[in-house]
Amino acid sequence: MRILSFNVNGIRAVEKRGFVDWIRQESPDVLCLQETKAHPDQLSSELNKPVDKDGKAYFSYWASAQKKGYSGVAIYSRIEPRDIKPLGVPEFDAEGRVLQADFKDFVLISAYFPNSQDAGARLGYKLDFCAAMLECCNKLVSAGRHLVLCGDYNIAHTPIDLARPKENEGNAGYLPEERAWMDTFIAAGYVDTFRSFHPGETGCYSWWSYRMSARERNVGWRLDYHCVDKAFMPKVSASIIRPDVQGSDHCPVQIELKLK
């Protein structure tokens, strides 16, 4: 099972850059999207129901922000989940930040973590979201479920997860409080799958500023993750970053599962 997660930074914008054709060519089993910035009724039929390489339509699910043109997540799946729901916390569901898809072997969560913004203007909201996310994960594990939490965490966890850590100390996404939450999350029994397969590897980023030719120079941040509960890690056969995919200031991240 191949699962991709992609912050598209506006699904209508990325549609103009060949997104629908890319889905057809790529044909992942599941594609989780963040920062869709749209409601389904604003989208083309091709975005509401994209098709895979065999011409079969994906099941599509949306959690949109009340504010038009803001935030939002979606899941396209070739496999119909047993259940689909938001986080269940009104202050975060109002911004369309989470979708949970219940599959037979695990629960897949597509999440768009808030940006703490300049001078930590939304740091409190961000940390509240992080706490709610951890509580959600812990409840699933306590109930005997495995989980994959994917999406844009808006956090570079360690110095090797961004090109210029010293210069970015005190900046949103690399604040001590955000990094400390990642420590707490990992210590609670969750695994950053990319780091499990690529420990210590540098220059691996999933977001680049549009300014100063940052992507061309690979001056980036690793903000997008697939994390799983520790007991599910043996089912993970690969976790990679896909900088070859253009269209957004982020690139997709990919995980592969062996479920049989």
Rank of each mutant, 00 (worst) to 15 (best):
N154T: 01
S209G: 02
N115Y: 14
R145I: 01
M133N: 05
I160K: 06
K68E: 15
W181Y: 12
G189N: 10
L257K: 12
L31F: 05
E169R: 15
V219W: 05
V191Y: 08
K68H: 13
R222H: 14
G200F: 08
W207M: 05
I160M: 11
N48K: 15
K230C: 05
V89P: 08
E169W: 07
P40L: 11
W208R: 05
Y153D: 03
R215P: 02
P165S: 11
G203Y: 08
S44A: 02
F197W: 04
Y61F: 15
L259Q: 13
C136D: 06
V14E: 08
K260P: 14
I186S: 05
E35P: 02
S209I: 09
H146C: 01
L134K: 13
N218W: 02
S44W: 01
V253W: 01
E169M: 12
K56A: 12
H226M: 12
I255K: 09
E80V: 04
R24W: 00
R78C: 03
E167P: 05
H226Y: 12
I79F: 13
N48R: 15
D224L: 11
P252S: 06
K126Q: 03
V219D: 10
G144A: 09
M1C: 08
A231Y: 02
A172E: 11
K37D: 02
L123N: 09
R2P: 03
L123F: 12
R217I: 02
E91V: 13
L162R: 13
K260G: 15
V148P: 07
V148G: 04
M233G: 04
S116N: 04
Y70K: 09
A101Q: 07
D229F: 03
A101C: 10
Q25T: 11
K53T: 12
K49P: 04
R242H: 12
L108F: 12
A63N: 14
D152Q: 08
P243H: 09
S248F: 10
C251F: 13
A214V: 10
C150T: 14
L31P: 01
K166L: 14
E178G: 06
L149F: 13
R222K: 13
A131S: 15
L33D: 07
I155K: 08
T158G: 06
P86Q: 04
A57Q: 10
G18F: 11
G10V: 00
K104F: 09
R222A: 07
P90T: 09
W62N: 01
P165T: 01
I109Y: 06
Y205I: 00
A119R: 06
L31E: 03
Y61P: 08
C137H: 01
A156W: 00
E167F: 04
M182D: 08
L33I: 02
P199Q: 03
T193V: 08
R145P: 04
T158Q: 15
E15A: 12
A121R: 15
K166Y: 07
G203N: 08
R24D: 03
R222M: 11
N154E: 09
P86A: 10
P159I: 00
N9F: 09
C136F: 10
A65H: 05
V30C: 05
M1N: 10
N171S: 10
E169T: 07
Q66N: 15
A188V: 11
G220N: 05
R242Y: 03
N171E: 11
Q42A: 14
R242D: 10
A74N: 03
Q42F: 10
V253G: 07
R82W: 03
Q117S: 13
A74G: 14
S142V: 06
M1T: 13
P90G: 00
L257C: 13
